[in-house]
């Protein structure tokens, strides 16, 4: 499979075979990392909005394979404030580096950057649209923890309306015949067009407001942040906040081997008392970002075939 020079913009761009291939490379690298694989390679990390977590993960991924990074985090560079176009910023960055990793608040910015650049562009999040490396590390985590991706029962919990990670993961899992449970307040339900897409792909799903109604069936529970600012009414927020909070009592009504995932940072959706249980995999999940991003960087740079 040829990935050299490819852009990583949207999870929708990948076939099932390509997804599995990337995961297999991540597994190889995790087992046997070559600290000189990306020696002499430079990644531009262009972060137009803050995301310390993602930026550090990419930086670590690059450096642990012997590569280097340059770039900026939001607020550090004045040229953007002076009104330089994204196009021009990308044309500049490609002179200095071999691959561009970009986070941008506007949707579609990554596609534009890929059009501008002659070197590969990896989307590290474009507004509410896509964050493909997050989706890949989510898949990697599920595959690693459950030993497979096919035929799992996956619950999505919390803010399903605005949760970009949920949308992308649901679409990605539709390749693997997952059965899905969407558990959210009515105001934060999964957008209709995603449900339509799942229906077209013949994916079975259920929408409920209460986790306890479906928890006994769930193999993978993917929790997301419920953000205060999404609620026009703060009383509404207070009302929902605790209804979507996981703690040890959740385990009593769940499958013994259910795993709990979360894209992090959490804001109270998961009680810290769960952190030490074998069900909680969200910190491991964050760690899985490293081999997955290493795999992508090595592939698009043509260092692994």
């Amino acid at each position: 499979m040829e990935f050299k020079g490819k852009d990583i913009i949207s999870i929708k761009d990948f076939s099932k075979e390509e997804l599995l291939y990337i995961l297999s490379i991540a597994k190889k690298i995790e087992k046997n990392p070559d600290p000189n694989l990306l020696k002499t390679k430079i990644a531009s990390l262009l972060f137009f909005e803050p995301s310390t977590r993602t930026r550090l993960s990419f930086s670590s991924a690059m450096k642990r394979l012997g590569g280097n990074t340059i770039g900026f985090a939001q607020g550090e560079v004045s040229s953007i404030k002076k009104g330089e176009t994204l196009w021009d910023t990308i044309k500049m960055a490609e002179q200095y580096s071999d691959v561009i990793v970009m986070r941008h608040p506007l949707e579609g910015a990554a596609r534009l950057a890929a059009d501008a650049a002659t070197i590969p562009v990896i989307n590290a999040g474009d507004g509410a649209n896509q964050h493909p490396t997050q989706t890949l590390l989510d898949l990697y985590t599920i595959q690693k923890e459950k030993g497979k991706l096919e035929n799992l029962n996956v619950g999505f919990l919390g803010d399903l309306k605005y949760g970009r990670t949920v949308h992308s993961l649901a679409i990605a899992l539709s390749h693997f015949k997952a059965k899905m449970f969407f558990i959210s307040p009515t105001a934060l339900k999964m957008p209709k067009h995603y449900l339509t897409e799942l229906k077209q792909k013949k994916i079975k799903f259920t929408e409920v407001r209460d986790l306890s109604k479906v928890s006994k069936q769930i193999d993978v529970l993917y929790a997301t942040r419920i953000q205060k600012e999404r609620f026009p009414d703060q009383l509404e927020y207070e009302k929902y906040k605790n209804a979507f909070r996981l703690d040890k009592s959740t385990l009593d009504i769940s499958k013994k081997d259910m795993i709990i995932m979360h894209p992090l940072p959490r804001v109270g959706e998961i009680d810290p008392e769960l952190d030490d249980t074998k069900n909680a995999v969200y910190f491991k999940q964050a760690g899985n970002g490293i081999p997955v991003r290493q795999a992508l960087l090595s592939l698009v740079l043509g260092k692994i075939q």
Binding site: L86, P105, L106, L112, A128
Partner: peptide
């Protein structure tokens, strides 16, 4: 919030 409404594209 689409890039095409914010930059000349």
């Amino acid at each position: 919030k689409c890039i095409t409404n914010n930059e000349k594209v």
